[in-house]
C-alpha cells in the first residue's frame, strides 16, 4: 500500500530530488524498539511534517538524522540514513551536524553569550570563520530569522533578555549561521504563545526556499499550514506518507483518517 503511495507521489524519479533517505531505520532504547523499519524519502527544499500521538517515535526519528542518539548510551540505531545520497557514517558526526542543523522544543540559547555571540557560536567554536565576515553573517542570519529589526541595537546584550519567541528565532538564526542544508525542528513552537508561533511558521515557510526542513509537530493544523508533505507515525511505525493535502483530505489509511479527524490523539 505504501509503495503505491510512493509511486503516486514520486512521479519525478530523479534521485537528487531527495536530500534524506532512510532505509529500514530502527532505533532501540534498552532493547525496546522506539521506531521500527522506517523507510522515508524527504524532498529537497521542501517542508516535511511528522505528525503522530505522543510516544510514536517522531522525535526519535528526527534525532537519529543528526546522530543525537549518540548521547544516549542505551540507544542503538539500525538501518541506513543517507544525506544527499551519502551515508551519514561517512560524514563523521561533526560534519554531519554542520550539514544537518537542529532547532529544539524549548528555546535554548546559550545563557552566557550575547545575541551576537549566540549567532556566531557555531562558527567560532568550530574554528571555521573569517572575523571580517562575522558582522555580515550575523545580520544575514538575524534578518532571515526575522529578528534583525528587533535586536539590531542591542546585539551585545544577553540572549536571555529576549522573549521566548525571540529566543527561538535566535536559535534558528544560530542554526542557519553554520550554513546547513537541512534543518530539523523538534516541536519548535510547543513552548511558544500563538503570535510567536505564527512568526515561526511564516519563517519556516520562507526558509524552505533555501533549506530542506523536517518539522515534528503535535499540532495538526500547524502541519497542514506549513508542510508540503506529511508523514504520520504511530507506535513506532510509519503509517502513511504523502502530500500534506492528501493526508488531511483523502488519507489512504483508516488510522491516519482517525488521527487527523481527532478520533484519537
Amino acid at each position: 500500500m505504501m509503495e503505491e503511495d510512493f509511486k503516486d507521489d514520486l512521479e519525478e524519479k530523479s534521485e537528487d530530488k531527495f536530500s534524506i533517505t532512510t532505509e529500514n531505520l530502527s532505533v532501540y532504547f534498552n532493547e525496546k524498539p522506539a521506531i521500527k523499519d522506517i523507510n522515508l524519502k524527504v524532498r529537497n527544499k521542501s517542508v516535511t511534517a511528522i505528525i503522530g500521538p505522543s510516544g510514536c517515535g517522531k522525535s526519535t526519528y528526527l534525532r537519529s538524522l543528526n546522530m543525537m542518539h549518540e548521547l544516549t548510551p542505551s540507544a542503538t540505531v539500525y538501518g541506513s540514513i543517507k544525506i544527499n545520497n551519502i551515508d551519514i557514517e561517512e560524514f563523521g558526526v561533526i560534519n554531519l551536524r554542520k550539514k544537518v542543523g537542529m532547532v529544539f522544543q524549548k528555546p535554548n540559547p546559550f545563557p552566557t553569550l550575547s545575541i551576537y555571540e549566540n549567532v556566531t557560536s557555531g562558527l567560532i567554536y568550530t574554528g571555521n570563520y573569517k572575523k571580517s565576515r562575522l558582522d555580515d553573517i550575523v545580520e544575514k542570519c538575524l534578518t532571515a530569522s526575522g529578528l534583525w529589526k528587533e535586536v539590531k541595537d542591542r546585539l551585545k546584550v544577553s540572549a536571555m533578555t529576549l522573549s521566548g519567541g525571540q529566543q527561538q528565532r535566535l536559535c534558528i538564526a544560530r542554526t542557519i549561521a553554520v550554513n546547513p542544508d537541512i534543518i530539523l525542528m523538534d516541536e519548535p513552537t510547543s513552548a511558544l504563545d500563538p503570535i510567536s508561533t505564527t512568526n515561526i511558521e511564516e519563517l519556516v515557510y520562507n526558509l524552505k526556499k533555501e533549506y530542506t526542513i523536517i518539522i515534528v509537530t503535535h499540532n495538526m493544523q500547524q502541519a497542514a499550514r506549513v508542510s508540503d508533505h506529511t508523514a504520520f507515525f504511530y507506535l513506532g511505525r510509519l503509517v502513511e506518507y504523502s502530500k500534506t493535502r492528501t493526508i488531511f483530505t483523502n488519507p489512504k489509511e483508516k488510522l491516519t483518517e482517525e488521527y487527523v479527524t481527532g478520533k484519537f490523539g
Binding site: 543528526n66 543525537m68 548521547l71 561533526i94 560534519n95 554531519l96 551536524r97 554542520k98 542543523g101 537542529m102 529544539f104 524549548k106 535554548n108 540559547p109 546559550f110 545563557p111 557560536s121 557555531g122 567554536y125 568550530t126 536559535c171 544560530r174 542554526t175 553554520v178
Partner: peptide, 17 residues
C-alpha cells in the same frame, strides 16, 4: 541543562569545545 549541551553539539561543535 542538557538542552544547552545538545544545542551546542547540534551545531557541530566538538565535545571538548
Amino acid at each position: 541543562p542538557q538542552s544547552i549541551r545538545e544545542a551546542s553539539l547540534a551545531l557541530g561543535i566538538s565535545r571538548w569545545r
